[in-house]
Design a protein around this nucleic acid. Structure first.
Length: 646
RNA sequence: GCCCUUGUAGCUCAGCCGGUAGAGCGCGUCCUUGGUAAGGACGAGGUCGGCGGUUCAAGUCCGCUCGAGGGCUCCA
C-alpha cells in the first residue's frame, strides 16, 4: 500500500478505488467486468502481484491437479486466488505451495498473451475441466476481446497484464487461507481463498511483514487490554463494551469536548430511554426495513400469555409481531424517533427553527457474530447523536454547521487521514423510503454543501440511509479496514412519516426538514479508532493519567503528596509511584503506561519546592521548575487540548 | 450467518509419539533508598474455555458447544 501511495498519491488512489466501486455498483456490470477492468489499470506492482497469483495457481495445480480455479487478482497489499477443492488447505499446505511457487519462479517461465475466440476459450476450459472459468468467460462483456495468459504448463483466462518472466516476481509470501463466496454472493458456493503478498525485493517484503507486526502492536484490542481501557466479557455478551475506569475518562473527555462545541452552536441536550414501543419503529420504518439487524422485540407479558393459552406456534407469534397484531417494545436501534417525539410534543413556529436536539444516545443492533470487532463493530453503542429540525431554506447552512463540527473534531484530534463519502441511494434497491423527487432534492443539497467542504469526496450509490442520503467521514484502522465515523444525513422522509409540521409566516402548517448528524459517530468506534490513531499515546487532555510523580527515595513521598494535592485541586489526574524501585524502573513503568508527564522529585527538588519534568515525548530532562510553574504549563496544555508533539 | 485458524496462571507463551502442569512479565511480602526505560530474595496464583466420548490413564485423541482471530457476506 505504501508503495502504491508513493506511485499514485492518495487522491489518485481514492479516485481509483472510487472508479472500481462505481463500476461494481453499476447494475449491468457483473463482477468479472470489474475484475476485467481492474486488470487494465494495473500499476507495475499490481502487475507483479497479479503474476504472483498466477504462479500460485500454477503451484496449486501441480500439487492438487483436481483444484477448480476461480479468479486471482491483486489487492491493495498483495494478491489472492480462489480455489474450489475438496481437500481443505492447511498451514502446512501453504508452505508446500510456497516452495512450489519458488520452483516455478526459478523455472523462469515466460508469461505469454494469447487472444482467442469465445468458442476456443470454452473448448479449452471444458477440456481442462475448469467450470468457473467458463462462467467467468460468459461474464466478459460482448465486444471485449477474450485473452489468455500462459506461463509454462498453466493457462488462465485473463485480461492481463503480467510481467514478462516468472523470475521478475522477486519476493513472495503466502499469508492466510479464508473462505470467500464465488462472485461474492452468499448464495453461491464458498471457495477457499489463499492470500499472499509479493514485493520487488526481499527487503521490501521483510519491511512489510514488520509493518504488519507494528500494526498489531497498536491494534486497539491489544492496547485496550494493555492500558486497561475497555473490556469485553463473555458473560456479558458479544459486542457489548464494558468501559473500564481508564477508558471512561477518555470517553468522558471526548463527550465534554463535543458538549462545549454543541453549546456554542445552539444545541439543546435531551435524554431518552433505551426501549420504545414497536409501533414507534413501525412508523419510522426502522422495524420493517431493518428487522434482521435488530435484537428480537420484547413482547408484553399479557400478550405473550394470551398467545400461549391459544396455543400459538412460534411462527404465528413472529407473524403477529410483524403484522402489528401484537405489541411490544424494541431496544432502540436509532434515536431519531424519540427526538422526533420530543420535537412534536410542542407546536413550533418558524421562529423557533432550527430546533437542535442532542443526546449521547445508546442504540442496539444485531450485528452478525462474524462481523463483531473490538470496539469498532459492536452490538450496543452510544452515538453522539443530534437531530436538527429546520426549514427548507435553513438546510444548507445547517449542513455546513454540522460539517464544520466534524472538521473541528478531526482537526482537534489531528486526524488527517480520512476520506469523505456522499452516500446516495441505489436506484435499483427497494430498501429506501419516500418519494424520488425528495431524494433528488436531499442529494442535491448534500452535494452542494460538500462542494464547499474543501476536501475531496466521492459519491457512492447504495451507501445512503433508508430515509435519506448522507455525508460520511471514513477512516482506516491499523489493519486497513475502513470505518465510518462522523456522519451528516439529510432527511425529508421521517418528517412525513411522523407528519411533523411547524407554523410558517403565512400562518399555515409547513413540513420541516430533518438533519441527523453524529460527529464522532459512535463513542465506541471512535474511541477504538482513536486508540490506534495515537497508538495509546493520548494527548494530555485525554490521557487517563496525566502526571506520575516519581519520588527518588521514600523521603520525598511527603513532598510528592503535597504536589499531588495541588494537582488534584487543579483537576489534574495524577498518582505517586512510591514503590521501592529505582528511578529507572519507575520511569519505565510510566512510559509503558503511556503517562504524558513524569514529575521527578529528589532531595534537591523537595528542598526547593520544585519538580523535574520529564515528558513522554521529549524524553530528556528539562530541568527543575517550580511546582506552580509546572502545573500552569500543564493546565495550559490541557485547556487548549494540545496534540502530542510529533 | 459461512469458511479457515485458535482457546494452558492477570498478560505473553512452552508443554515431543496420551502417564494428572512450566517459564518470563505482572502481583504479594521482605531486603535494598537509588537521579531518567527493568536492584535482589522468597512467595501466592491454573477444575489446561465448557460439556460429553475413547482409554487403565486426556491439557494432549474424537464429537458437540461457547468465545477469540483472519477472511467472505452484511452494516440505518
Amino acid at each position: 500500500m505504501l508503495l502504491e501511495q508513493q506511485c499514485l498519491g492518495r487522491s489518485a488512489l481514492i479516485a481509483i478505488r472510487q472508479a472500481k466501486k462505481t463500476l461494481a455498483n453499476a447494475a449491468c456490470m457483473i463482477e468479472h467486468a470489474r475484475f476485467y477492468i481492474d486488470m487494465k489499470t494495473m500499476t507495475p506492482l499490481e502487475e507483479m502481484r497479479h503474476s504472483a497469483a498466477h504462479i500460485l495457481a500454477t503451484a496449486v495445480l501441480r500439487l492438487f491437479p483436481e483444484a477448480k480455479l476461480d479468479i486471482g487478482p491483486p489487492t491493495d497489499t498483495g494478491f489472492y486466488y480462489d480455489f474450489d477443492l475438496e481437500h481443505k488447505f492447511t498451514a502446512a499446505d501453504l508452505e508446500r505451495i510456497e516452495d512450489e511457487m519458488r520452483k516455478v519462479i526459478k523455472e523462469n517461465q515466460r508469461f505469454e498473451r494469447i487472444e482467442a475466440t469465445r468458442d476456443e476459450a470454452e473448448a479449452l476450459f471444458t477440456k481442462l475441466n475448469q467450470p468457473y472459468k467458463i462462467i467467468r468467460l460468459a461474464d466478459i462483456p460482448d465486444g471485449e476481446p477474450v485473452t489468455f495468459y500462459r506461463n509454462g504448463e498453466f493457462t488462465d483466462l485473463c485480461a492481463g497484464t503480467h510481467v514478462n518472466y516468472t523470475k521478475q516476481v522477486k519476493a513472495i509470501k503466502l499469508l492466510s487461507i479464508a473462505g470467500a463466496y464465488h462472485k461474492g454472493d452468499e448464495k453461491n458456493k464458498q471457495l477457499q481463498r489463499i492470500y499472499g503478498t509479493a514485493f520487488p525485493s526481499k527487503e521490501e517484503l521483510e519491511h512489510y511483514l514488520q509493518q504488519l507486526e507494528e500494526a498489531r502492536k497498536r491494534d486497539h484490542r491489544r492496547l485496550g487490554k494493555d492500558l486497561k481501557l475497555f473490556h469485553i466479557d463473555e458473560a456479558v455478551g458479544q459486542g457489548l463494551i464494558l468501559w473500564t475506569p481508564n477508558g471512561s475518562i477518555v470517553r468522558q473527555e471526548l463527550q465534554n469536548f463535543i458538549l462545549d462545541e454543541l453549546q456554542r452552536q445552539g444545541y439543546q441536550q435531551v435524554f431518552t430511554p433505551h426501549i420504545g414501543k414497536l409501533g414507534l419503529y413501525r412508523t419510522s420504518g426502522h422495524f420493517p426495513y431493518y428487522k434482521e439487524s435488530q435484537f428480537m422485540p420484547i413482547i408484553e407479558r399479557d400478550a405473550m400469555d394470551d398467545m400461549v393459552h391459544r396455543g400459538c406456534s412460534c411462527a404465528e407469534l413472529s407473524n403477529s409481531v410483524d403484522e402489528g397484531d401484537v405489541d411490544g417494545y424494541l431496544l432502540k436501534p436509532m434515536n431519531c424517533p424519540m427526538h422526533i417525539k420530543i420535537f412534536d410534543s410542542q407546536p413550533h413556529s418558524y421562529r423557533d427553527l432550527p430546533v437542535r436536539l442532542a443526546e449521547f444516545g445508546t442504540v442496539y443492533r444485531w450485528e452478525q457474530s462474524g462481523e463483531l470487532n473490538g470496539m469498532t463493530r459492536v452490538r450496543g453503542f452510544t452515538q453522539d447523536d443530534a437531530h436538527i429540525f429546520c426549514t427548507e431554506e435553513q438546510v444548507a447552512s445547517e449542513i455546513s454547521g454540522c460539517l464544520e463540527l466534524v472538521k473541528t473534531v478531526f482537526s482537534t484530534l489531528g486526524m488527517k487521514d480520512y476520506r469523505v463519502r456522499i452516500g446516495l441511494r441505489d436506484p435499483d434497491s427497494s430498501k429506501y423510503t419516500g418519494d424520488g423527487a425528495l431524494w433528488d432534492k436531499a442529494e442535491a443539497a448534500l452535494r452542494q454543501v460538500a462542494g464547499t467542504l474543501g476536501v475531496p469526496y466521492t459519491e457512492e450509490p447504495g451507501e445512503a440511509a433508508f430515509y435519506g442520503p448522507k455525508i460520511d467521514f471514513v477512516v482506516r484502522d491499523v489493519i486497513g479496514r475502513e470505518w465510518q465515523l462522523g456522519t451528516v444525513q439529510v432527511d425529508y422522509n421521517l418528517p412525513i412519516r411522523f407528519d411533523l409540521s411547524y407554523v410558517g409566516p403565512d400562518n399555515k402548517p409547513h413540513r420541516p426538514v430533518m438533519i441527523h448528524r453524529a460527529p464522532f459517530g459512535s463513542m465506541e468506534r471512535f474511541t477504538g479508532v482513536l486508540i490506534e490513531h495515537f497508538a495509546g499515546n493520548f494527548p494530555t487532555w485525554l490521557a487517563p493519567e496525566q502526571v506520575r510523580l516519581l519520588p527518588i527515595t521514600d523521603d520525598q513521598v511527603p513532598f510528592c503528596k503535597e504536589v499531588q494535592a495541588k494537582l488534584k485541586a487543579a483537576k489534574v489526574r495524577c498518582s505517586i509511584d512510591d514503590q521501592s524501585d529505582k528511578l529507572g524502573a519507575k520511569i519505565r513503568r510510566a512510559e509503558l503506561e503511556k503517562v504524558p508527564y513524569m514529575f521527578v522529585v529528589g532531595k534537591n527538588e523537595a528542598a526547593e519546592g520544585k519538580v523535574t519534568v520529564r515528558s513522554r515525548v521529549r524524553k530528556s530532562v528539562e530541568g527543575a521548575r517550580s511546582t506552580a510553574e509546572a502545573i500552569d504549563l500543564l493546565l495550559t496544555e490541557i485547556a487548549s487540548r494540545q496534540l502530542p508533539e510529533a
